[in-house]
Design a protein around this nucleic acid. Sequence first.
DNA 1: ACGCCACCTGTCCTCGTGGACAATACAAAT
DNA 2: ATTTGTATTGTCCACGAGGACAGGTGGCGT
Lengths: 208, 208
Amino acid sequence: MSPAEPLLILTDDDLLAERWQALGRSPVRARRVDDLGTWRATGHRLVLVDLDPRRPDAPLWQHPAWQHNVAGLSILAASAQPDDDEGLAVLNAGASGYCHTHAPTATLRQALDVIAGGELWVGRALLSRLLRLVDTRLPRVGLAHWSTPLTEREREVAQLAAIGDSNLTIADALGITERTVKAHLKAVFEKLQVADRLQLALRVHGVR
Amino acid sequence: MSPAEPLLILTDDDLLAERWQALGRSPVRARRVDDLGTWRATGHRLVLVDLDPRRPDAPLWQHPAWQHNVAGLSILAASAQPDDDEGLAVLNAGASGYCHTHAPTATLRQALDVIAGGELWVGRALLSRLLRLVDTRLPRVGLAHWSTPLTEREREVAQLAAIGDSNLTIADALGITERTVKAHLKAVFEKLQVADRLQLALRVHGVR
DNA sequence: ACGCCACCTGTCCTCGTGGACAATACAAAT
DNA sequence: ATTTGTATTGTCCACGAGGACAGGTGGCGT
């Protein structure tokens, strides 16, 4: 059940590195942040990184090597003393997940699975706090929603098309024919005054 | 790889119910929110619920049956038209996860695994927004820009492609051949790990 | 000099997209 | 009863996108 992706373990703690060996099929060990670039070049995109180096200078995520390589990587950051603010900082620095250094192996493996799939992983505590924080301040005004002129069915089709689903995928999802999807999309394009599904996606996601 | 927990599927959409059958070992189907109490009594604690009933009255999470049973359950809420605010609302109402109704089976299964383990599951889009909302006070250091791993030329091409320009249009704009545009885009797709220009557009414009 | 890399170009080929003609069934409104 | 709107499906066709091969240039560092 390990992630199919080759895993890069980044820590200068030998004990920790040994613990983490069990998480990947053939995990690779690195000691310094500078190694990120090297291993990315070899196709390693899944990284488990220890945020508590033995000789702490600056936060790891402010290191140039981090910032140069973070875009192409899925990084799960682990801290021995997880702290909400640290978590927010590292996630905002491009990490895909934040967890406890000594979290159960099963949990770590699951987190790696999740971020390998392009999602984000945040522990229950931090996530709860996030939810509470934003709960109080929701803009939520009745602005002209993109879907107002659309029918129910057209909305469904548009929603799926806007996240990149193909016509056939949408058809299967809704239990209709690809031809029907096209018909709905044609109507959507006209009503929203867009030329193709890319423009539709931008409109739906509020770009521009 | 299915969750060990017995899964309760709650939807009045027959097609959807059929699709979701594959998610659990021996999934049980329910149609109305009121059934939550009944099935909880039988030991079902893992629930996948469709937030879009055919006869929409009030939001599902405001139903008495929901509020009476939510405490003992791990609920993954799915919406056909995922909306950040809806997600926040349902999570604050006690759900453990929020996702797209027609998300890939693998994703749904993963989400169920996560919430079965007591964690919370939130999709990348919503989570990103949460992070952005609370980071207004954070230093906002060198953030991970989508263009970091790209070369200068690739950035230009990607930028134009992301707003919907055709390859030929991009070529004319940059004074190069359409073939060259394709070459740059191919490199961009690989580096950013996206399949096509629509996914590229979403990435560039900070969606998901 | 050699290798690496960014940049540029060429030709097939397959496939999804979207437009242009259609048509049918069913509901609610007039 | 007729009209209007929504949802559904059909075929044909032109075009762009993106992959799979291929190549050639110039700069820059060892």
